[in-house]
Amino acid sequence: MSEIIYDKNNNAHEVTDFNDDVEGARQGMWLFLFTELMLFGGIFITYAVYFFDFTDDFVQASKNMNLWLGGLNTVILLISAGCLAMSVVFMKANKVLESKRFLLATIALAIAFIVVKYFEWSAEFHHGIWPDSPTLRGMSDGANMYFGLYFTLTGLHGLHIILGIVAMFWVLGKVNNGEINAKKFIVLENFALYWDYVHLVWVFVVPLFYMIGLSTGGAH
């Protein structure tokens, strides 16, 4: 299929065809994740700076977090990533039906994540906490920064989940019409990379936003 050319000593060399370049697609995906990491990295740097400036306020503000919902979402996301990994393995083994089931499970869990997030944000809105709300403006500078970052980061993360759900339906379509199969599964594999990355961000959101409030610091 691919073009073969010969050098002066008649050694054969395969020319990489950009249409079917799995390693290229993989590198592209990693580079994309790389840019995503720098994007979220920007928020984490901002977090670090303000955490340094307003340590006590951050700890106090973190006590407003609902740990049950946060914990539930952590587990949901963790299992969904596991499901997607399974989906890829089953696809590789040419067990398309199982692969599809795991993909559907991932979609369901992703939607569950968004629903939980909706309740979490609703609860905060209910307490009068949203960006620029009068309650929030009445709180400390640090609390303003904390919630500003919290809503930005979880909002952006939620947006990634929603885009992920859309993309998963697209991937599902490709599985259904056979464009993704046991021989060509790079799209599914790349999507799994994206999903693991979204999970990875959440792994760092949890300690920085939910868990610091449980420490004994900042009580004064």
Partner: peptide, 25 residues
């Protein structure tokens, strides 16, 4: 382009959120 542009991307987003939602950063 790959390395640095995302950082300005997030900066611009934060500035947009600042104006639209008043996050205060």
């Amino acid at each position: 382009q790959v390395l640095a542009t995302p950082v300005v991307g997030i900066t611009l987003l934060l500035a947009i959120f600042e104006r639209v939602f008043g996050i205060g950063i």
